[in-house]
Design a protein around this nucleic acid. Structure first.
Lengths: 343, 343
DNA sequence: CTGTTAGCGCGTTCAG
DNA sequence: CTGAACGCGCTAACAG
């Protein structure tokens, strides 16, 4: 690494001590005469001075970066959260240190470790690991944590979550309102809290209406980019092969819904005229397919903003922080759902 | 920030000097007796020692993080590049410091500055700024730069690029091979090198075949998530209102193609039976729409890997680095293009 | 093999 | 208002 000029170089050039330079260049409240101040600023500019934040951080023990760990940025759900988080971070002069865990607990652990070593003391995480003790250790050592899109039952760990149960409930109520009775829930494995809660909401709404639940859960598949989509296709095919066919299919997320629609169309079944399809998440692509996807919108960007604010508050010892925020989903009416055919 | 234990604490507990502790804990090749070594390791573990990389970096003047600046991770094109880059970085014990510039030159500049202050000395960037002097300054101060998906005419700056001209040429050749003659090129503003090169390839193929070019360029619009999609719709409508209608529309990227298809279907024009549509980029979503999008595939993940390798080589003074790599595009045949109707 | 010393670049006492 | 001196956590050079 090329050597760059330091406050000492500037001090020498300005015939002052490095302390004075430090006071000027770091905007200290400490009084410095206007002449010296402007002289130092001029020389710093001339010399293209770039402060070394490592030295500063080492001294002040403050690190203005926020760590983020998510499964993968290729998922629009997560990348949108990050954009929101980054916006707030930037406005507060914080940087974002982003890591993709690829659903791999070991990678996740490795990244947390690296962050901590780099003195990052705040982390927003959508964890895949079930190992709470690991995170607990770091929290005890001073790590501020906000859990994204999940509950982590740890003291001092905040969380921003979506009300998945309510979202599932809303979706089914809407379908019922459109006259549907044979409403299937097509889902990838019910092993994550989010999907389990949507499932509960589905069951509740069905039970309330006195309807028979129709749940189809896919088996686990190796993780890949088009995993959800492929599963949606399989689920749709299987559902349409039943003797009791659904008139509406509620998918556990938009990607699965895309797969469902794709398969239905391949089977020459019209969406929504013959079968309505409802998604979940509200990613941008939903509006680009044909028909545009009716879905439940999760305000991910907002979640990112909130998570960042929480983290900022957490680092501010005086402030009280809301420890647990639940975001309400919204129904996004587009064109993949229509009223049920009257038999 | 809570104070954490340092090598001095461990040195005290083990009755040795901090130098010895450093030698053990940082895996120095320096010889240390096995007894002391194990004793130190044991105490470090007991005390939950976490090294402070800031101190280390300050001393060794090495920073194992790679900066990345791209317009936005919500664009699958970029997020895929990043995944590839991160893979290689991780395998070499480097971290990735990711920033979204949102097509905003000031943000971009701010991020470069921050990175440099944090002593990051390698940067992969898909720049939006036309201000070369800025980047040149940093390069002179020791920043290693790899340009992503664009040419930057600066000494010492490497680049990985796609052969857009060839991609455009291939796409049109393919359409011509399917019997199309009225082939439109629908594009967002021709202000970026990538689009300009696709455009050139288009023109070249048309000229070669003795066909009349039919280029429609959209006006600039404020940046938003669905900017490309909306433009695709507008472009398609405008093209289909002409007296001389195209039988195939070649879009400058997949998102625009989605908009084109969407609008055509809204106009009750069958794709591909009446009008074929060809995309560019090969993002995953292309397979999820109906009909699946025929497009030109850009191997973004690979680009990320290559960029990271370049950066790594750049930091290795001994190594010769390939300064300019051009990745060849591939035609991805799906179902949105078919043979032209014979009149 | 081990310890002592001297910084890396910066901010912060404490005297003047 | 200014400067000398010290230390943040770590490693490298040198001495033993």
């Amino acid at each position: 690494m090329k050597k760059s000029i330091t406050i000492h170089d500037i001090a020498r050039l300005a015939n002052v001590s490095s302390a004075t330079v430090s006071r000027v260049l770091s905007n200290s409240s400490y009084p410095v005469s206007p002449e010296l101040r402007s002289k130092i600023l001029r020389i710093a500019k001339e010399q293209n001075y770039v402060p070394n934040l490592l030295g500063k951080q080492l001294k002040t023990k403050t690190n203005k970066t926020i760590g983020v760990i998510i499964p993968t940025i290729t998922n629009a759900f997560y990348s949108s959260i990050i954009l929101g988080l980054e916006e707030i971070a930037r406005k507060n002069n914080y940087s974002v240190f982003l890591c993709n865990s690829f659903q791999n607990p070991e990678l996740e652990e490795m990244y947390i470790k690296t962050m901590f070593e780099k003195q990052v003391r705040s982390l927003a995480i959508s964890s895949i690991s079930r190992n709470q003790t690991l995170l607990r250790n770091y929290v005890e050592m001073g790590l501020n944590v906000v859990a994204l899109d999940q509950k982590i039952g740890l003291d001092g760990v905040c969380q921003v979550d979506f009300d998945y149960r309510k979202g599932g409930y809303m979706a089914v109520r809407y379908l019922i309102g459109q006259g549907h009775e044979k409403i299937a829930f097509a889902t990838t494995p019910l092993d994550r809290p989010s999907r389990m809660n949507i499932h509960e909401g589905y069951l509740e709404a069905m039970r309330e209406a006195g309807l028979e639940p129709m749940v189809l859960e896919s088996g686990p598949i190796a993780y890949s980019a088009s995993y959800e989509f492929e599963n949606g296709k399989l689920l749709a095919r299987e559902l349409m092969e039943r003797k009791e066919k659904p008139t509406a299919i509620f998918a556990c997320n938009d990607l699965v819904a895309f797969g469902v629609i794709h398969e239905l169309q391949a089977l020459r079944i019209k969406v929504p005229e013959e079968v309505s399809v409802m998604g979940f998440d509200g990613i941008d692509f939903g509006q680009m397919i044909n028909p545009p996807l009716t879905t439940v919108l999760l305000q991910t960007y907002e979640m990112g903003r909130i998570a960042c604010h929480m983290l900022l508050d957490l680092m501010n010892p005086g402030k009280k922080v809301e420890a647990d925020i639940m975001l309400a989903p919204k129904l996004l009416e587009r064109e993949s759902v229509t009223t049920a055919l009257q038999k």
